[in-house]
């Protein structure tokens, strides 16, 4: 009797473990989907026609995804002084610029917290041969400069950016992310 009870308990325990294990991937997928949705929901893209070449749907989807990722990587890189995140989304002059900023932050014990609350993005240009795209973005963002663990300044701003994406291999990367007056 006692052995049967113990066996039932063991079966119940194993079933419970099996259920928990099987639900982990689903929970992870759900969490990731939520993260992506949350990340891109701040971005309002205007579907205006690009010149001189019309933007393909696939390219448009890729740019939306990569632009949201670029902001996330930039924010994480500047907050944590991590140069490894820069290469994920940036290339050329913009990459050099971010690496220099992180290098200076590290030397001076600084870090920057950026919080991009909303983006109004417009596709402005798609090069005839299909390897470069220019976006115009108006960003609501807050910035905080930290010295060690101490905040030395914070402000909120509405900032316009001109953004150039370039095709590197099979991935779009940000070559220019320049603040406009």
């Amino acid at each position: 009797m006692s052995a049967a009870k113990s066996s039932n308990r063991m079966t119940f325990f194993l079933l419970a473990m099996l259920f928990l294990l099987s639900s982990i991937p689903a929970v992870m997928i759900h969490a990731r989907a939520w993260d992506e949705a949350d990340n891109s929901s701040r971005f309002d893209f205007t579907n205006s026609s690009t010149a001189p070449r019309e933007l393909e749907d696939q390219t448009q989807t890729a740019i939306k995804r990569e632009y949201a990722a670029a902001w996330q990587n930039m924010e994480d890189a500047l907050a944590q002084n991590r140069i490894d995140l820069v290469d994920k989304s940036f290339v050329g002059g913009e990459r050099d610029q971010l690496l220099r900023q992180i290098d200076q932050q590290k030397k001076n014990g600084l870090s920057s917290k950026l919080d991009d609350r909303s983006h109004k993005v417009e596709f402005a240009f798609y090069s005839p041969e299909g390897t470069a795209i220019e976006l115009h973005d108006t960003v609501e963002l807050s910035q905080e400069t930290m010295d060690g663990g101490k905040s030395v300044h914070s402000d909120n701003a509405t900032q316009k950016y001109v953004v150039i994406f370039t095709l590197v291999g099979d991935k779009w990367k940000v070559r220019t992310l320049q603040e406009m007056q």
Binding site: D96, Q97, L98, R100, Q101, Q104, Q105, N108, G109, L110, S112, Q143, T145, D147, V152, H153, Q178, E179
Partner: peptide
């Protein structure tokens, strides 16, 4: 002096 800007984080 802190100077924070594109590519710049001076103290």
């Amino acid at each position: 002096l802190y100077l924070i800007g594109p590519g710049t984080a001076i103290k």
